[in-house]
Design a protein around this nucleic acid. Structure first.
Lengths: 155, 155
DNA sequence: GCGGGTAGGTTGATGCATCAACTTGATGGG
DNA sequence: CCCATCAAGTTGATGCATCAACCTACCCGC
């Protein structure tokens, strides 16, 4: 039944390769920077930003997981590691005996407040500054388009 | 001395977020697919493609690492795991006593020949098909531009 | 021909990602 | 009320990524 594989043509392959290489290099550099500047991993950063951005620095476990689109087990392991380092703590939930709140500690706040400006600076320097505003917005729109397309695909 | 952080403006932030979310979702789905379709990880796939694409299925260790832009230690660990599963083997290098060749085994060839068409199909379905040829080429050019920009930046 | 630097590669430790299995508390139907 | 089922979250195992330290073999100047 095997249909002949629809290999990528040269233009498609070039575009795909550039895209992948660009993203890998960009993310690699950003995450090494954030790690060496602040001692936070990219995962720590995402968690702390999400927690502290909305007011009280606390969120229900699964709400947090959904917000950043992580599986619960991934989040659980991450929170365990961060709690061990004092960046967040777990609190139990009065309404639901199974439930948990994840709370950013003062050390967590300090860490993210120190890390965020540097991180943004690197995003700007490595990525935003590479493009004109119009190119940037084009890239954003194309990304949205791919996202929408994926939503409509099985898997 | 701290300059005030140059936060991203809303357009910049939207573009950045879309871009990041898109890439994460895309890579996540592709690598889960390749894993469940073929039992290869994305890393296995990259190594096997690189080895088998150029003729004899063998390459010097560091040449391979440079080709895919990995650190030698990453490659070494990866090769160890793959060798354990019989996908590649190490051979010593007659010219250089320190050196090693990495060789794709018959099982490695079978694995990649089975995995590649499926993988390409998913890339096409999830990514290529989301865009018109002209949009795809735009995305490729923007990626190149970011890559070039990064080359010129420190770190 | 030997002693020091460097190139080629390995190893161990640690953190991150994913999968499957598990526990415990909530909930709703009979 | 009780049992089944589901939701919330944890745990353990395994593979991947990164860093630093290490080991040899090669090479070059003397």
């Amino acid at each position: 039944m095997d249909a002949p594989p629809r290999w990528l043509n040269p233009e498609e392959k070039d575009a795909w390769d550039s895209f992948i290489r660009m993203h890998e290099k960009l993310i690699g550099r950003l995450s090494r920077r954030i790690q060496s500047d602040s001692g936070l991993s990219a995962a720590d950063y995402v968690v702390l930003v999400s927690l502290t951005e909305r007011g009280d620095g606390r969120m229900r476990f699964l709400d947090l997981a959904k917000l950043v689109e992580w599986e619960k087990s991934r989040m659980s392991h991450q929170v365990t590691r961060m709690a061990k380092r004092g960046l967040v703590s777990r609190e139990e939930c009065p309404d639901d005996g199974r439930g948990a709140f994840i709370v950013a500690t003062p050390a967590g706040y300090r860490a993210i407040e120190e890390a965020a400006p540097q991180h943004v600076e690197h995003v700007r320097r490595l990525f935003i500054d590479a493009l004109t505003p119009s190119q940037l917005s084009t890239l954003g729109r194309l990304s949205e388009r791919v996202l929408d397309h994926m939503e409509r695909q099985p898997d």
